[in-house]
């Protein structure tokens, strides 16, 4: 009987530790190294100035890749803006329940020009994945677009 009681107490302690740990910040990938944060709005305002540079950004996670957790979208400090933080498949996996949490993330800014066909294909895929309310409108994609993202190395989510 004493053994059973001890086992139950030990399990309760483990469960309590797990709950406490879950409430804390969680690190993904490499540790954060930069001391200065770059506003996402500054990157989106002049992406070419940041191309190839390592930055640290902070913001609310507003979207998570539903299939693999291989990217998150981080809200900008400016309204209606966000940036995609893409990580290598399988190296970092963001959980879906990270949505709405605060992310401090580090990586290298990538600026790519997408042809209208590539942009259309990417938007179609995102629309399918997100299942948003709005109907997909392919007529919006009439010219080449600039795609800005951060190639993610590490993040802290809390």
């Amino acid at each position: 009987m004493t053994t059973i009681r001890t086992a139950i107490a030990a399990l309760a302690l483990v469960a309590l530790s797990a709950t406490t740990a879950a409430a804390q910040a969680k690190d993904y990938g490499k540790g954060l190294t930069l001391k200065v944060k770059t506003p996402i709005s500054a990157i989106l305002k002049d992406p070419h100035a940041f191309h190839g540079k390592k930055v640290q950004v902070e913001g609310t996670i507003v979207e998570v890749c539903e299939e693999r957790g291989c990217w998150i979208k981080i809200a900008s400090d400016k309204q209606f803006e966000s940036i995609r933080f893409k990580v290598e498949d399988g190296v970092i996996t963001f959980p879906l329940d990270a949505k709405g949490k605060l992310a401090l993330a580090e990586g290298v800014v990538e600026v790519n020009m997408l042809t209208k066909e590539q942009a259309l294909a990417q938007a179609k895929e995102m629309h399918k994945e997100r299942g948003t309310m709005a109907k997909f409108d392919p007529s919006k994609y009439t010219k080449d677009v600039m795609d800005v993202q951060i190639k993610g190395e590490g993040a802290r989510v809390k």
Binding site: T60, V62, A75, Q79, F80, S82, G100, K101, L102
Partner: peptide, 9 residues
């Protein structure tokens, strides 16, 4: 809510 966001107007 935990947080909020406006992706568009």
């Amino acid at each position: 809510p935990r947080s909020s966001f406006r992706p568009d107007p």
